[in-house]
Design a protein around this nucleic acid. Sequence first.
DNA 1: CCGCCTCGAGTTCT
DNA 2: CTCGAGGCGG
Length: 673
Amino acid sequence: MALKAYERRAHDLRRRIDDANYRYHVLDDPQISDQDYDALLRELIDLEEAHPDVRTPDSPTQRVGGTPAAGFPPYVHARPMLSLANAFDEDELLAFDARVHKLAGIDGDIAYTCELKIDGLAVSLRYDVGRLSAGGTRGDGSTGEEVTANLRAIKAIPLALRDAEVALPRHIDVRGEAYMRKSDFARLNADREARELAPFANPRNAAAGGIRQLDPKMTAERALSFYAYAVGEIDAPNPPQTQSALLAYLRALGFRVNEHAHGVPSIRDVLAFAQEWEAKRDALDYEIDGIVIKVDDLVLQARLGTVGKDPRWAIAYKFRAREARTKLLDITVSVGRTGVLNPNAVLEPVHIGGTTVSNATLHNQDYIRTNDIRVGDVVTVIRAGDVIPRVVGPVLELREGDLPEYTLPTVCPVCGSDVDRPEGEALSRCTNATCPAQRRERLRHFCSRGAMDIEGIGDQLSAALVDTETVRDVSDLYHLDLEKLLTLPRMAEKSASNVLAAIERSKSRGLARLLFGLGIRMVGAQNAAILAGDLGSITALAAATEEELLRSEGIGEQIARSVVLFFAQEPNRAMIERLAAAGVDVTAPLRPREPVGVLAGKTLVLTGTLPTLTRDEAKDLIVAAGGKVSGSVSKKTDYVVAGDDAGSKLEKAESLGIAIIDEAGLQALLTAG
DNA sequence: CCGCCTCGAGTTCT
DNA sequence: CTCGAGGCGG
């Protein structure tokens, strides 16, 4: 059957536009001018409008066609999108290589593929018989959000695969990174600033926001780009057998593949690649935060398998902490719940690695003095292995004129009372226990998760309650009513009754958490639990002498004195009476002398993020089984429970030869008895 | 009295 | 997570 003339023309236009797209977005080698491109697209749009029957789903006019979705449906990955373990230095890369050798039972060199780790958003694209049928974000690795319409708006993502060089796969999931070029990011932010919108902190955030736009037109405006680097489920004749072949295959199918990806014969070449790109990263037009190393042989990859969510055949080498220079505009001083004066650096906002830093703690007077940090200095700020930025010191050659040395105020910046700094101690404290700042912070602490866990009372509401004198001490919480709450700003029926319900629920937390919540100096969660378990009730505690308290494990003179002092004060005694009278549980089950349970006498340390349990849940389980949870690893530690992104504690455990288990291992221990 | 171990307190940004 | 400091064993 003969095609009508306009059908042939539509087909021809689509082919030429797709080709121009491919050359422009994938090959970076445009052959026709923007004007010519626009003319072709215009003609096709007009043609399709005149003859809707010639419109096809993969027509270039359909990139921004989809209707805006309300929220995103879940997108289930046929094969999970894995996360990567991190290496932070060469030794860890070498350790990775050694592990691969050991697991694979190979003596000679192992070939790897090195790829730049682009800082964007990982997505998965599903192609059925050569056509983009769906796409989603990584999410938790097994389920993400279905954002097909938005992914179609990214011009570097082919709507249909090319079959010129390789046979089309019947089905393929292509994984890659959606990202924003630095130049596009700069343009976007300039535009947003002109429109008085808040600029994005970095290209990654802008890209992620772009993908999650409800209107695909907005995604298109973000000018996102895409690099393909992996394949999930695949059903194809002669699929590639190595990662390097896989990248070539993706390129043949019409994807952009990063041109710096590079196969190497051994780990030594990986180190060279890492060094090269750590030095050259700023020259690229996109952000990278490291490199990804994969075992090249896909059969060997499959043999090595995964542990948890991390493949054993790949690792991410993260570049060392980023540092930046910025101006120290001011030093402000805040007052903590114990009265400690905390100097904070107010910085001219500066981008470090992924985020904008504008505040950083300066710890105390000594830290400021020893690092010679002065207001007005240009300072160096780093973000090390942790996420918390640190002001390391001034850039002395940029210091202008005579800047005065900084000294902490000698009176409290909030209430004006005297500040006390005992001989030899690092911290200065406001001496006024009724200082509004201290009262706000004490209330916040009382309501915090580890203490009475009152949902809805955070720093905002704590401050409002204290400042309006609605709550003078924590016992007043239990005499609040709707009427009083509704007088506060941003408080309506709904939230007020939620808060009241949360307060009601908090009455049954028990003595250990109550004691911790009271914020007695030197009594944290651990000591509170010990004291509660040994004395059983707040009346017993209030009546106890120093000598009696000293019998408890880990309680020495200082702590005992602090507890006695707290209960000797009349306002505190009155507060406790009121708490008990309001129905707050002020008792605790007495601790058995010898812990019982399968973990009796065992000390465990938690690190990283566990797959299903929260840190608190894991801790509760261990304690219930008679075990102890400690914050730091030492010779006395029996097990380290390691989850995702485990930090230095894991290293320490390895160096001390302490048993390391994962969540499943912990569950096994718990059920063993 | 010294050194190890543990605990407390405070921390940035999204 | 890190620092400072209290508790306690050697």
